[in-house]
């Protein structure tokens, strides 16, 4: 019952449209739109509550209890914050490029939505089952760079410009080890389809066979969404707030929420690629597959937040050195070792 909750809802909708005499093409289109809207709502609500989670985690790690006044357990705190931010003016600097300046926060949620469309949330729960799913996901994940660059350039402010240049430098440096680390998994599976990658982990998760790849992927992913210890992009003590310096009101809030959306994405990707996606471990199949997916995803999100409230920010030269001198060679070595391993396994005759 719970296992097929969402697929049943989709089937019900399809039958309903069929019985209403809607042609099959329109039926498919409507269903896809419904799925995408559901994902959009899911992302927005999650981003909203992840802000609260972040504050709660921060509080708990500092021996306090975080927001707890608005709503039960503080659950409406961030909703109220967003309500306040919506009601505020978005001040536009006189010398800013107005179109770019306003376009950046409007577009910032597009890549997360497009990525989530391709991620399998559970058994048969993927809006777009692409055969190059992994490629698609990585291509879109790096698209966020352009939006930050747009915001930083359009603001016409030196701190914004510096911040957005850091975004570009950091993302380019860390994209490389991230993709190279996943290469080992692609070699093992022989496919870039996310559903097939999950299916290949039926017996053993790739975190066991590719532990170094997981580590590199996770570190690079944390850097990718500009989180501590790699949050140089908005290093308050150096460049005020990076690309968001000139933004106020909802413009700022969109960037702020997008950060949490990108945390969700990297956690969902790490879950899909290394932690077996929606597969239940130890045969615990009585818990529905989508719940397993979210469980793993939220554990990883918690780890990212745990990093944030533990580690200090690293220096720019350390960031670049770490990326190019340690992560890239390590991931290349991982690809090499995986290749040799596969060759040996094949020679043995597995």
């Amino acid at each position: 019952m719970l296992e097929n909750l969402f697929t049943n809802i989709a089937g019900l909708l399809r039958n309903l449209l069929d019985s209403a005499g809607v042609p099959p093409l329109w039926n498919d289109v409507t269903l896809l739109v419904v799925k995408l809207v559901a994902i959009l709502v899911f992302i927005l609500i999650n981003a909203l509550w992840l802000v609260l989670m972040e504050r709660k985690v921060a509080g708990y790690m500092q021996a306090r209890i975080g927001p707890n006044r608005v709503g039960p357990w503080g659950l409406l705190q961030t909703t109220c914050d967003i309500g306040k931010l919506i009601s505020k003016e978005i001040p536009i600097p006189k010398s800013a490029d107005k179109i770019l300046f306003l376009l950046a926060p409007a577009l910032v949620f597009v890549p997360p939505l497009m990525i989530f469309a391709a991620i399998p949330f559970g058994k048969d729960m993927v809006a777009l089952d692409l055969n190059i799913g992994l490629f698609y996901v990585f291509a879109l994940a790096s698209l966020t760079t352009i939006i930050f660059w747009m915001g930083g350039w359009g603001s016409n402010n030196k701190y914004s410009l510096l911040g957005s240049m850091r975004v570009v430098a950091q993302m380019v440096s860390y994209e490389l080890p991230m993709i190279l680390s996943v290469l080992g998994v692609i070699m093992l599976v022989g496919s870039m389809n996310l559903t097939e990658i999950i299916a290949a982990q039926q017996n053993m998760w790739f975190i066991v066979t590719q532990p170094i790849a997981f580590l590199i992927f996770f570190i690079a992913a944390v850097a990718e969404c500009n989180r501590t210890p790699f949050d140089l992009v908005e290093g308050e003590s150096e460049i005020i707030n990076g690309p968001y310096t000139e933004y106020g009101g909802m413009g700022f809030a969109m960037f702020f929420l997008a950060e949490y959306a990108s945390i969700m994405i990297i956690s969902a990707m790490a879950t899909t690629i290394f932690l077996g996606g929606w597969l239940a471990p130890f045969g615990l199949t009585f818990i529905p597959s989508w719940l397993w997916f979210f469980l793993k995803m939220y554990v990883l999100i918690f780890v990212v937040m745990w990093f944030r409230w533990t580690f200090p920010r690293i220096r720019v030269d350390q960031l670049m050195g770490f990326g190019w001198k340690i992560l890239v060679p390590l991931s290349l070595a991982n690809v090499f070792v995986t290749g040799i391993g596969m060759y040996i396994y094949r020679a043995i005759g597995w």
Partner: peptide, 10 residues
């Protein structure tokens, strides 16, 4: 930080 996370709040 994990120890703090699970400890009693002040």
């Amino acid at each position: 930080t994990w120890k703090e996370f699970t400890s009693k709040k002040f």
